[in-house]
Amino acid sequence: MSVQNLNTFDPFAEEGDPLAGAQDVGSQADYIHIRIQQRNGRKTLTTLQGLPKQYDPKKLLKAFKKEFACNGTLVDDEKMGQVIQLQGDQRSKISAFLTENGIEKSTIKVHGF
């Protein structure tokens, strides 16, 4: 016969930080972020971060460059992984391009002003 109160589990024990082990609480890992950054003057820079693994960033960059007629580069960031950088404000074009090519619009987050 088991008495619940005699269990080894102490319900009043300190649990510690419940989120200690979870690194990705509230993570936005599954989003594709499109951001913009201001440079000097009217110039801007667009970055695309969080591309799903099945897409080849190199090929995508090539397509972007051709399609938007801008230059761009692939940046390796230790935290963010591979990031595509494009010259100029290409946010809406990128998002349109990605949705046209079969990426869910809800996974794309466009940031900036």
Binding site: G26, Q28, Q37, R39, Q49, V75, V83, Q85, H111
Partner: peptide
């Protein structure tokens, strides 16, 4: 409800 923490993403080198 919980809300997402504000995370700043990749910051490109400017300047």
């Amino acid at each position: 409800r919980s809300v997402n923490a504000i995370k700043s993403g990749f910051q490109a080198q400017v300047g």
